[in-house]
Amino acid sequence: MSNQDDTRQNPLERLLGPTAPEVGCDECFDRLDEFVELELADFDADAAVPGLRAHLEGCPACREEHDSLLALVAGG
């Protein structure tokens, strides 16, 4: 991810979070299930839910929940 590359180049980038427009935690939670199913179906989840991916880069708690839901649903 470019964000990780940025972090290696400049520690400020991680502290300052994503530059792209992002949703907040509440909207992230509202649409996380839809986003994860689109990802698992290889649809363009980023186009369907703009701003959610950027939020995951900036919010560790939402990222953990996304990763867990993705793993749980993918595992059946």
Binding site: D33, E64, E65, L69
Partner: peptide
């Protein structure tokens, strides 16, 4: 109905568990 009901339900349990564990 934007996702399967079970996926929608799972996220509530993962949220609650995640918050409590953190």
């Amino acid at each position: 109905g934007a996702s399967r009901f079970t996926t929608w339900a799972y996220k509530f349990a993962l949220l609650e568990a995640g918050v409590k564990l953190r």
